[in-house]
Design a protein around this nucleic acid. Structure first.
Lengths: 76, 76
DNA sequence: TTATTTGTAGGCAAATATGCTCATAATATT
DNA sequence: AATATTATGAGCATATTTGCCTACAAATAA
């Protein structure tokens, strides 16, 4: 994720924080979310910390596993 | 994009179609959207056709270039 | 119909994400 | 405090995306 500009980077970080907030609110561990979404646990961790610019498909899978509409992940 | 399952794939295709719908509605060409978003034009084409599982950062950049909130791209 | 614009398609190298593993830190539980 | 659980960090091979390019198809305008 070297070439993303600062604004993009900030967005990605905010997205991760919001994801973590929702996951904790749902009382799920990263391991549970990983299992339910079929997204690797190390990736879940990286997405939440905003160190990774993950894909549309993963975002969708995660929203499904959380049981929330995908646009909920963008409400911040 | 080999490992995405069918449901994911369908979602990605719907997302692309919705993106194209919004771009056309805004009377922008792929070239204009590429220039405004700083996402390569060939990628824009592939995202709209759903052949590519693009990244959060690109989706954000595209929404900015379109002048719509990002969750608008997920309303379909 | 001819020319112009717009979109699709494919190949390629380089950049980045992904899945996997192990180690360690941080947090919660006893 | 000690133990168990949960999250972070880093490294690696492989998969995928990205940007750049060229060629062609499809639509639009002249």
């Amino acid at each position: 994720m070297y070439k993303v500009d600062i604004e993009k980077k900030n967005f990605i970080i905010k997205f991760g924080k919001n994801l973590q907030r929702i996951r904790v609110q749902k009382k799920l561990t990263q391991a549970q979310l990983a299992a339910d979404s079929n997204v690797e646990i190390s990736q879940i961790s990286r997405v939440e910390r905003g160190v990774l610019n993950t894909s549309l498909g993963n975002i969708y899978a995660i929203s499904q596993a959380l049981g929330v509409p995908i646009d909920e992940l963008f409400k911040f």
